[in-house]
């Protein structure tokens, strides 16, 4: 080693320069509860069953989503719309139960593509959160159907 290398001081000065550069660098931290990491616009998160403009459920229980699902996470039972329920269900056939097993779902979005009624979507702002019990991961209609927007008509 040369004398300057054996003195180590130039190398130490260089190291100090590097750390000083990092000292003034922009920090990578995202302050989580206050800020969240922005997601992609095509992020596929939690499912939602859409309503139409009158607040009636769009799903007609055709089962195409269940067929398309590679993880077989979707099950449903179909029922016939009775008289006086036109404001609840858009088509004459509707899903009495509609369940998505979030433990099986791989969030591929094929159900979304398969749906002919534009009823099921994967939201870009919601996630399926962690839970303690397995059966809590089976999301029924109570948690999937989009809530009614119109509160002023009540």
């Amino acid at each position: 080693m040369t004398l300057s290398e054996r003195m180590y001081l130039p190398a130490i000065a260089q190291g100090l320069g590097i750390t000083l550069k990092h000292f003034f660098k922009k920090k990578a931290t995202i302050n989580y509860p206050e800020e969240t990491r922005s997601r992609s616009e095509i992020w596929r998160g939690l499912h939602v069953l859409k309503r139409d403009e009158n607040g009636a459920e769009r799903c007609t229980a055709c089962g195409l989503c269940a067929v398309a699902c590679p993880a077989e996470a979707i099950t449903m039972t179909a029922g016939e719309r009775k008289k006086g329920e036109e404001h609840l269900y858009r088509e004459e056939k509707y899903a009495v139960t509609y369940e998505v097993n979030m433990l099986r779902c791989i969030f591929c979005g094929l159900c979304e593509e398969a749906c002919p009624k534009a009823a099921i979507f994967l939201q870009d702002d919601k996630l399926a959160p962690a839970r303690y019990e397995r059966d809590e991961f089976i999301y029924g209609k109570d948690r999937l159907v989009e809530p009614l927007k119109t509160t002023e008509t009540k």
Binding site: K25, A28, T29
Partner: peptide
């Protein structure tokens, strides 16, 4: 704080 800044973190806040 300085440790955090040098390591590209924000430190106690």
């Amino acid at each position: 704080k300085i440790a955090a800044f040098i390591q590209d973190r924000v430190g106690p806040n």
